[in-house]
Simulated assay, not measured.
Amino acid sequence: MVIPPLTGKRALVTGGTGGIGLETALALAGAGAEVVVAGRAKTKVDHAVAAVREAVGTAKVTGLVLDLASLASIDRAAAEVLATGQPLDLLINNAGVMAVPERRETVDGFEVTFGTNHLGHFALTGHLLPALLAAPAARVVTVSAKVARNKGATLEDPLSAVSYAGMAAYTKSKLANVVFTLELARRATGTGITAVAVHPGTSATGLQQHLPKYAQVLASALLERFVGQSPADAARPSLHAATNPGIKPGDFVVPDARGELRGAPHVAELPVAATDPDVGRRLWELSEELTRVAYSFR
C-alpha cells in the first residue's frame, strides 16, 4: 500500500510490538514519520524498535512502555510523550485484548477487556490532547472490529458487573471504540483533530492468545490462507484512516471484500448502535468519571 510522505510527522502506535500494530509502525516509519512504538513489556518494545530500524534504515523510532490496563502507566507514558514538547500528528489506538475466558480486572478495578480496549485508550487520548492540538492536522485512529456491527450489540453493563462472557465483553469494547470516535469527532469540531474508527479485517495475530490452543493453531493456519489476510494487509485500514486526504471526522474504514474480512480499505456505513449522540454522551461521561481524565479542547 502506498501512503503519502510523512516526513516531519510524529506518530504513536499502541500495541506496536507485534501483529497489525508493528506493521502499522513499519509502514509509517517507511513513509518518513517519526514513530513511537508503545507496548506493555520493555523487552518486546525494544525488539520492535530494533525491527523497525532494521527494516527501515532511516527510521526515526523510539519505544514507550505503556500498559493500557493501568491508569498510572498511561499517565506516566503520556507525560513522557508530552515532555518532548513535540506535536503528535497521528495517534493509532491499536492495542487490544479479546475473548478473555473469565472476568478479570485491571489494576484500577475495571473489567479488563473494556478497561484496556476502551477506557485505556480514552485516558491516553485525553492525556495526549495537548500534543494532538499542537499539530496542524492531527488524526486519532481507533481500531474497532466487525463485531461492533453485531445485531443486538449494546453498551449496557459495560464493565460486565452483572454477567460476563469473553466475546460479549469484546463486542462491547469494540462498539465503545466507534462510539468514542464519533463523540470525539463531535467534541473536536473546530480543532485540527480528525477522529476515525477502523475495522482491520481478519488476521491471525496475538489478539487470539486467549483462545484455546487448538483454536489458535487453526486460526493461524486458516485465516491468512483462506478467509483472512496477513497482518501487513490488515494494517491497511489504519494506514488509510491515518493518511488518506479524503478521510472525514467520524468515518469508519473497513476492508471492501465480501464480509469485510479482507480487501482494500474504504469508508463504510457506521454500526447503527454507535450513531446515537446520547449514547456517545453517556459513554463519554462514564469514561471521564472512571478514568478521572477530562478533555479540554482549548
Score class of each variant (00 low, 15 high):
D89F: 11
F180P: 05
S70T: 02
G39C: 01
A123W: 07
G190A: 13
L184A: 12
H240I: 04
A29K: 03
A168S: 15
R76V: 13
S203H: 04
G15Q: 00
L132C: 09
A51T: 14
T189V: 14
L12D: 02
N117E: 01
A234I: 02
A29F: 12
G120S: 09
G263Q: 09
V107S: 07
A41M: 10
P245N: 03
L159T: 07
E105I: 03
A197E: 02
D251H: 14
L290T: 11
A48L: 01
P212A: 09
T189P: 11
G96S: 03
F110Y: 14
L64K: 00
I20D: 05
S70R: 12
A242E: 01
A138S: 13
Q208R: 11
A27W: 04
L207K: 04
G15A: 05
T125R: 11
L12N: 08
A221S: 13
G85K: 14
S70N: 02
G120Q: 04
D276P: 13
G201H: 04
N177S: 15
V140W: 00
A95S: 10
A197K: 03
T62V: 10
K42T: 13
A95H: 03
P136A: 10
S220Y: 14
T275N: 00
L71R: 14
L88N: 05
H127L: 11
R187T: 09
A135C: 12
E23K: 02
S220A: 15
L88Y: 12
I3H: 07
D108A: 11
L6S: 07
L207M: 13
F180Q: 09
M1I: 04
T84R: 07
F180M: 04
A153W: 00
P212E: 06
A294G: 06
L175A: 05
E34D: 12
D67E: 13
R281N: 10
V162P: 02
L22D: 03
I92N: 05
S296C: 14
V141A: 01
A38R: 06
L261Q: 13
L88H: 10
V61C: 03
T189Q: 15
T17C: 15
T17S: 11
P231G: 01
G126I: 06
S160K: 08
A69V: 06
L26N: 04
S238A: 15
K9L: 14
G190F: 11
L90Y: 09
R40S: 08
V178S: 11
G109T: 08
V37M: 02
A25S: 08
A188E: 06
V49Y: 00
A77H: 06
D89T: 02
P136W: 00
L26Q: 03
R186D: 12
V65R: 08
G228I: 00
I74S: 00
V45H: 05
P271R: 10
A241M: 09
M98V: 12
P136S: 13
E34R: 15
R103M: 04
A78I: 06
V279T: 15
G259Y: 00
V112I: 15
D108F: 13
V217C: 11
Y295N: 10
N150F: 14
L129E: 01
L88V: 08
Q86K: 15
L82I: 11
H118L: 09
E111Y: 03
L211E: 08
E34P: 07
V179H: 11
F252C: 08
A135P: 14
A188Q: 03
K44M: 08
N93M: 01
L223T: 13
V147D: 02
Q229W: 04
